[in-house]
Amino acid sequence: MPVLDAVSVFAHDLSESTAFYELLGFVFPDEAMSEQHVEGSLPGGEVRVMIDTIELIESLLGEPPRAGNASIFALRCDTPAEVDSLAARIGAAGQTVKVPAWDAPWGQRYATVEDPSGHRIDLYAPL
């Protein structure tokens, strides 16, 4: 049976995007980096984020990639306070908090942040 292993995003600037995902807790070992591709994982290594340059994606797809206006993935946090903390860390680093942390009617603390290339990531925890 297939298992979710990685989420892939493109970046205008690999260094800037790597720094953003490090704020969310991803770790990028030196051997996982090249000039066009980097890979990082959360502690525990269950899911990776793969970040490619726009040029690499365009060479593979035959067209430039585009970020959407919806989240590409969500990170489950242990507590509502962790959602607040991560969103605050993103904002304090000068990055975009698209939707500040709030208590959603479906019983979760929820926030949406945006990476430097426009990819949106939901942060959530059960209330």
Rank of each mutant, 00 (worst) to 15 (best):
S8L: 14
G40V: 10
C77K: 00
Y124I: 12
E63F: 13
P105K: 10
S17P: 00
K98D: 14
F20A: 06
R89I: 03
G45F: 01
G44L: 01
E46R: 14
R48F: 01
P2S: 11
D30H: 05
P126T: 08
E16A: 15
A67N: 03
N69E: 15
L56A: 08
V27W: 02
G118V: 10
C77R: 04
L60C: 03
D30R: 08
R76Y: 11
T79S: 15
W102M: 14
A67R: 00
W102R: 14
C77P: 02
W106F: 15
A81T: 11
A70N: 13
I57E: 02
V7A: 12
F20S: 03
L60Y: 08
L86R: 01
S17T: 15
G40K: 09
S8P: 02
D5K: 11
T79M: 12
V49T: 06
E22Q: 14
G45N: 08
A104C: 09
V97E: 10
G62Q: 12
A67H: 06
D84C: 01
A87T: 03
L75R: 03
I90P: 00
L123H: 07
L60M: 11
T96W: 05
G68P: 00
D78E: 14
P65D: 07
S41H: 06
Y124A: 12
Y21R: 01
A74F: 00
D52P: 03
Q95T: 02
D13C: 10
E58C: 08
D30Q: 07
L14V: 07
C77D: 02
Q108R: 09
G94D: 06
S41Y: 06
H12M: 00
D30A: 14
Y110M: 13
S15P: 00
L60H: 08
N69D: 15
A70P: 03
E31S: 12
V3G: 00
G91Y: 01
E35V: 02
H37G: 01
T112Q: 14
T53W: 04
S59L: 05
L123K: 03
Q95Y: 11
P64C: 11
R48V: 01
F20Y: 13
D5G: 05
P64W: 11
I54M: 13
P100Y: 13
H119Q: 09
A87C: 04
L56E: 02
P2L: 13
Q36V: 14
S59W: 09
F26L: 15
E55H: 10
M50V: 14
F73D: 06
L4S: 02
D103Q: 14
G25R: 07
A81F: 09
A125M: 12
E39F: 00
P116V: 09
R89H: 05
A67G: 07
G107P: 06
E39K: 00
S59V: 08
H119K: 08
D122F: 04
I72C: 12
F26N: 04
L14R: 06
T18D: 07
